[in-house]
């Protein structure tokens, strides 16, 4: 056991955590604003490329970070224009954006960086490391309490949640709901850009095709598991990170890599199943507890399910393509 758990493992957990957590925080904002953003994967991948390209041409990792944030926001702007301004199906646009990101980054890595598949160079500036972690890791930790305060205490966070819960109610009070949704999607683009920068300049210092490898999708699930709350999202992201880090370690001990790389996705799916089942029974029990005898008077309105997992099912179920 001691071979598996030690300080180095903790450090690799933190490294695995940062990109997923940053992307998931972006997804959380979109969820709160009522936009189902499944483009996180693509935003992050473009962020990876832009970070490497920025650092390479700018000669400084921080220029890479800034480029990544801008690139992530540009991708997000496409989603936000199509789905919020035009009212297009966010799921379809999100899927297409993920595929666009794969094609675009592979295209650019060849035309701009002149490499095929993977770009790596000793002269490529990576992020500085303090106490074995990159500054973006510390930033991601700081963002969790900031998100708590933002959502719970500030006027904008308060209104953002209203926009997501009932856009028509928010609109009737004069809130420009689209502006909030645009802001949330753009912020998610910036956060995914940071996630990409961490992945490509922090965890490793290189770009390779499709290097996000589904982490953006995991971030989507992490938001569902965390019920779109910052702390819950952190815990869910940690679950993924621990599995990934332990998997790497076990791989070092001779377990076939096929199983260790797939493990985080299996665990994430299993957690989603468990949470869905649990939430289902809880909702039923809660409803029975408060309303069991026939409602008196006008009858109590049953609580509206607001958790993202349920909502995602709904949005997915109602999604029709024509």
């Amino acid at each position: 056991m001691t071979e598996i758990f030690d300080l180095a493992l903790l450090e690799s957990v933190m490294r695995a955590l940062t990109p997923v957590l940053l992307a998931a925080l972006g997804g959380l904002l979109c969820e709160k604003a009522g936009v189902f953003n499944i483009g996180l994967e693509g935003f992050m991948l473009v962020g990876c490329f832009a970070a490497v390209a920025g650092s390479w041409f700018g000669g400084d990792a921080w220029i890479g970070v800034i480029t990544a944030v801008i690139a992530g926001m540009l991708m997000a702007a496409i989603l936000s224009f199509a789905s919020v301004t035009l009212g297009a199906d966010a799921i379809i646009v999100g899927i297409a954006l993920n595929l666009l990101a794969v094609g675009l980054t592979s295209f650019l890595v060849r035309t701009v960086l002149g490499a095929q598949g993977t770009f790596q160079d000793p002269a490529l500036d990576g992020l500085p490391i303090f106490l074995s972690q990159s500054p973006l890791t510390y930033l991601s930790w700081a963002l969790v309490p900031i998100f708590v305060v933002f959502l719970r205490r500030t006027v904008w966070g308060f209104r953002l949640q209203g926009v997501g819960e009932s856009p028509s109610a928010a609109r009737s009070l004069g809130v420009n709901t689209k502006r909030y949704q645009h802001a949330a999607v753009l912020a998610s683009g910036a956060l995914c850009g940071l996630a990409g920068a961490q992945l490509a300049l922090g965890n490793v210092v290189l770009f390779s095709e499709n290097m996000t490898a589904g982490r953006g999708w995991v971030a989507v699930v992490v938001v569902m598991l965390g019920q779109a709350a910052p702390i819950g999202t952190l815990v869910a992201a940690l679950l993924f990170a621990v599995t990934e880090a332990v998997g790497f370690r076990l791989q070092g001990l001779g377990l076939p890599s096929q199983f260790t790389t797939a493990a985080p996705y299996v665990i994430t799916l299993a957690a989603l199943v468990l949470v869905s089942v649990r939430r289902r029974t809880l909702t039923v029990r809660r409803a029975r507890g408060t309303n069991s005898p026939a409602p008196s008077g006008g009858g109590a309105t049953p609580p509206v399910p607001t958790d993202p997992a349920t909502r995602a099912t709904v949005s997915q179920g109602e999604n029709h393509v024509s």
């Binding site: 006027v155 819960e165 109610a169 928010a170 004069g174 509206v304 607001t306």
Partner: peptide, 24 residues
């Protein structure tokens, strides 16, 4: 046109919120 998960006070104050320091 109400927000079911918010309290009465929060619903009433929405977009006419009393604030501290201009943002809280």
């Amino acid at each position: 046109k109400l927000f079911p998960s918010l309290t009465v006070a929060e619903n009433v104050a929405f977009r006419a919120e009393p604030t501290r320091l201009g943002m809280f």
